[in-house]
Amino acid sequence: MKAFFLTLLAIALSLLVVDLVVPGVDLATFPAALLGAASIGVVNSFIKPILSVLSLPFNIVTLGLFSVVVNGLCFWLAAVAVPGFTVHGLFAFIFGPIVLSLVNTFLSNYFAQREPELEME
C-alpha cells in the first residue's frame, strides 16, 4: 500500500514538473496533480492497451513512432477527466508525456533507493 502511494506521489510531482517545463500543460493545484496522477494510471491501465492494439498497423508502418501519438492521446484523455488539469497544443500533446516519463523514472528510482524494501512499478 505504501508503494502505491509513493508511486502516486511520484507521478503527481512529475506532473508538477511537466507543468513548469512544458508550455501548454497547466495544473491549477496540487490536488489536481494527484487526481491527474490517478487519472493517468487509470487511462494507462485500461485505455492505452486497447489503443495500442488498434494502432498496431500504424506502429509497424512508422517503426514505432506512432506510440508517441498514443502516449499523447492518453495524456490528453487523462487531462480531460480532471478539472484543473489541461493540455493545450501539439507541443504539450507530444512532449508532455515524454517529460513526464523521464521525471517519473528519476523520482521512482530515487524513492526505490530510499525505501529498498518497496517495489515501485
Results as ranks from 00 to 15, higher is better:
K2F: 12
A3G: 05
F4T: 06
F4P: 04
T7W: 02
T7V: 03
L8P: 02
A10D: 09
A10L: 02
I11Q: 03
I11W: 01
A12L: 01
L13N: 07
S14G: 14
L15P: 04
V17W: 01
V18R: 06
V18P: 10
D19K: 09
D19W: 05
L20I: 08
V22L: 09
P23N: 12
G24F: 15
V25Y: 03
V25Q: 05
V25L: 08
L27G: 10
F30Y: 08
F30W: 07
P31T: 13
P31N: 12
A32H: 00
A33H: 04
A38M: 06
A38K: 01
S39I: 05
S39C: 06
G41V: 05
V42Q: 09
V42C: 12
V42K: 07
S45I: 07
F46G: 14
I47N: 06
I47V: 15
K48H: 08
P49H: 14
I50N: 13
S52E: 11
V53G: 13
L54E: 08
S55F: 13
S55Q: 07
F58M: 13
F58L: 15
N59Q: 13
I60V: 12
T62G: 04
G64L: 05
F66V: 00
V68S: 10
V68F: 14
V70S: 02
N71D: 12
G72L: 07
L73A: 14
W76V: 14
W76A: 15
L77V: 15
A78Q: 07
A79G: 13
A79H: 07
A79L: 09
A79M: 07
V80D: 10
P83E: 14
P83T: 15
G84C: 12
G84M: 09
T86R: 13
V87R: 11
H88E: 15
G89A: 14
L90E: 12
L90W: 15
F91L: 15
F91C: 11
A92N: 11
A92S: 15
A92T: 11
F95H: 10
G96C: 13
P97H: 05
I98K: 06
S101E: 05
S101C: 05
L102D: 06
V103I: 07
T105K: 00
T105D: 02
F106E: 00
F106V: 10
L107E: 00
Y110D: 00
F111M: 00
Q113K: 01
Q113V: 00
R114Y: 00
R114S: 04
P116Q: 00
E119A: 06
E119I: 08
M120V: 06
M120L: 12
M120G: 02
M120T: 02
